[in-house]
Design a protein around this nucleic acid. Structure first.
Lengths: 355, 355
DNA sequence: CTCTTGATTGCACACGTGTACGGACGAAGA
DNA sequence: TCTTCGTCCGTACACGTGTGCAATCAAGAG
């Protein structure tokens, strides 16, 4: 026993002698200091009832003084759970995504999970690398935001056999769960609002990628117009890409119409931002000449000039919900397949009565 | 040898029999399939010259068909390097931060690193948890953005003995490296621009937290005024918190002055957003009554009404630089202590000649 | 005083990978 | 034929933690 310990000490001393400072203390170091075995240290730090209270206290004290931090990687190896999730997003630079990320990260941390963040940039090559990285990291679960990527590599994700949670993307697979906003009702409310203001020629500025969310929002827009007895006017539906620049060129088609619309519903706030800019560029005023409504209620919506009427998505809350349910799924509980949160119309000053 | 193999198979079969699908294939599974030892598989997958080319090809084929993904956690345990970094930010919901995150994540992935993201929310308790989590995860390096947190827990970070990179935060410690924007020159350029437009009563709307960046920007502002022979006017310096709301109340103090300023330099674009809103709320016009300049050039700066004159920070590039240099540091190379990138004045329409 | 029981603790594994070391084998040279 | 050398592969560790099981010890019951 003695020579064994000596051997250990020597074995540890050889490499440690030169670079002791470069290695973090291990559970065995603490065990040696406390003159107990390493399993006892392990149990003490887990507050196991199997170890004497005094011994545990002493061990914890020593561990604390030594600045001991248990290695999550070693623990993950033996427990087969890393308490880690992968979060993939087209780009965090998008305000919608960053709010969702915020919500996810917040509740993940509260539950002892760490999150790996990865931008896909909607680039298939990068997406593959990202998924492969998550698989190698042995994440316990995955959350995906921002749509279309889903259809491309969800089969790959399925191989990893971990729960997957989608935010604002509806993918028809049995193994996926999702958090969604009520796109239909939200956009219908915005459209009804415009109808109520007397508008008849109401345009829709959509997203050319044809996300499920865009499809649902157009449907809500149509439903409101139908209910008001306004016939469908195909020339009033144009497409951007969800970003300001494309919205500027898209709305140009509406403005140059012989009989331009008096109001426009935008797929999202970013599109509305571009739309308003282009409207002004043509010497028209918002809302006097054209009313503009957005979708999302990003932080800048109340600071545009005029402040933007929009449909609020509780983005952070959606991130929280996604993470909360992912945690349930990861611990084996069953969870509702699709969580739907309500959209809320926020009326500001970018919409007004038809003049 | 035979019974040993049989023992292995039995040992693996017992738990695997029920839940084989729940376990990802290990290197030993591949070894068994390829009828070689697991070290050979390990070497083959690393393209080691120590293994026969044909054997290696065969092994790689088998591994590929089996959907084998080497466990980064097991590898991290033995190599003592996780190829993982921790990225702490006050909140990703802040557009500045999210751009930096984007740059970091992009180059991290390109170099085989994964990034743990954590929001501190400037909450000390959460910050502690975050740092502890990073320590337990055995990250190879850390990047911190958004200032003041640095001073609070950098000593903790130092304990982990990993390189630390700061973005836009100057902390006087030998062990930290940073990438910064030329705050002084940037704000001086903005101020000179206003002086050049004939303004004499130029205000500064700063950040009450007194970040190093704020201090440097005020100095740049003062320098420009001094150079123009404009005396310092303390009542023209007010403080927000870098966000729109606080900027609204801060600028109110300027607007109610007996002799209000004709131009205002804002600490950042978010402050400028609030400032412009409040200016309009009081019935004044930008830039006719008051010129407004921002700092950062966030994505919305060109979409405000009027488009915002501001000082551009190459945020994404700064994130890239931080990551690139962190990689150098992690591989033992020495790196420049402080990387400084240039700020660039972007003149738009929110500033004009003094009327 | 002996047996039983409960409270603590240590031993021996396992997790999945990387690597130093030695052994087997064939080819080439003496 | 024997030695030598290079190629290729397997054996035996190690990394740091968690956990089933056995061992030890003290105390109480009989």
């Amino acid at each position: 026993m003695l020579d064994k310990e000596a051997g250990k000490a020597a074995g540890a001393a050889q490499p440690a002698g030169q670079k002791r400072a470069l290695r973090q203390p291990s559970i065995k170091d603490i065990a040696r200091l406390a003159r107990v075995s390493h399993p006892t240290v392990s149990r003490a730090l887990q507050n196991s009832p199997l170890v004497n209270a005094q011994t545990a206290a002493k061990i914890r004290k020593i561990a604390d003084e030594a600045g001991y931090r248990a290695s999550a990687v070693a623990r993950g190896l033996v427990t087969r759970r890393t308490r880690t999730i992968g979060l993939v997003v087209t780009t965090v630079a998008d305000p919608f995504a960053s709010e969702v990320v915020c919500g996810v990260e917040e509740t993940a941390n509260d539950h002892g999970y760490s999150v790996f963040l990865a931008d896909s940039n909607a680039d298939p090559v990068r997406e593959k690398k990202v998924v492969q990285a998550f698989a190698e990291r042995r994440v316990d679960g995955i959350i995906v935001t921002s749509s279309r990527v889903g259809a491309l590599y969800l089969p790959l994700l399925a191989e990893m056999m971990v729960p997957i949670m989608l935010v604002n993307d509806q993918y028809p697979g049995a193994f996926v769960h999702s958090v969604m906003i009520s796109n239909f009702e939200g956009m219908r409310a915005a459209s009804e609002h415009l109808v109520g203001l007397g508008h008849r020629r109401i345009a829709y500025l959509g997203d050319k990628f044809g996300y499920a969310s865009d499809t649902e929002r157009v449907a809500g827009y149509r439903a409101a117009l139908d209910a008001a007895g306004i016939p469908a006017m195909p020339e009033l539906i144009v497409h951007g890409d969800g970003k300001p620049e494309a919205a500027m060129t898209a709305i140009e088609k509406l403005l140059t119409l012989a009989d331009p619309p008096t109001a426009v519903c935008c797929y999202n706030d970013m599109s509305a931002l571009g739309a308003m800019r282009q409207i002004r560029a043509r010497g028209l005023r918002v809302p006097e000449d054209i009313s503009v409504a957005g979708f999302d209620d990003l932080f800048f919506a109340s600071y545009t000039q005029p402040p933007l009427t929009t449909v609020r998505q509780p983005m952070r809350r959606m991130g929280q919900l996604a993470m909360e349910n992912l945690i349930k799924l990861m611990s084996g509980e069953e969870s509702v397949e699709q969580i739907k949160v309500d959209a809320e119309l926020i009326v500001r000053e970018s919409t007004t009565m038809r003049s």
